[in-house]
């Protein structure tokens, strides 16, 4: 895995998100109320809404455009909606956050 440092846990508000710009587009990095960190593509499977701008609750986020609820763990739409967004490996080492972009790069090379 090619881990890239993106900042610290405290950079993200509790129950909030920040964006990371990459050559493959934006990635949304979330921090839940329990301080768990998740990263998914910042692109709702419905109409491409910026998920990083949504309201974070439990381990899910509600898209700001049309209120789809996306699981941060699986990237899958919850409830009656169907769709899926790519999840990105992320790790928290003593407050420092890293993401792995390998999968993204591979996907781009396909």
């Amino acid at each position: 895995m090619n881990w890239i440092e993106i900042g610290t846990l405290s950079d993200i508000p509790l129950r909030g998100a920040r964006c990371v710009k990459t050559p493959q587009g934006k990635i949304a990095v979330f921090r839940t109320a329990e301080n768990d960190v998740f990263a998914i593509e910042d692109h709702c499977p419905h109409k491409g809404g910026p998920l990083s701008q949504g309201i974070v609750h439990g381990r899910a986020v509600t898209c700001p455009l049309h209120n789809w609820v996306i699981s941060l763990e699986s990237g899958k739409a919850l409830g009656a909606d169907e769709g899926e967004v790519r999840t990105i490996p992320v790790k928290n080492e003593g407050g420092k956050l890293f993401i792995a972009l390998e999968r993204l790069m591979l996907a781009a090379a396909e």
Partner: peptide
């Protein structure tokens, strides 16, 4: 301030390393 700026910007080179 955090709301308006990306947390980080990953350059192509960095990602490809």
């Amino acid at each position: 301030k955090h709301e308006f700026n990306p947390m980080a910007t990953v350059e192509y080179r960095q990602a490809a390393e």
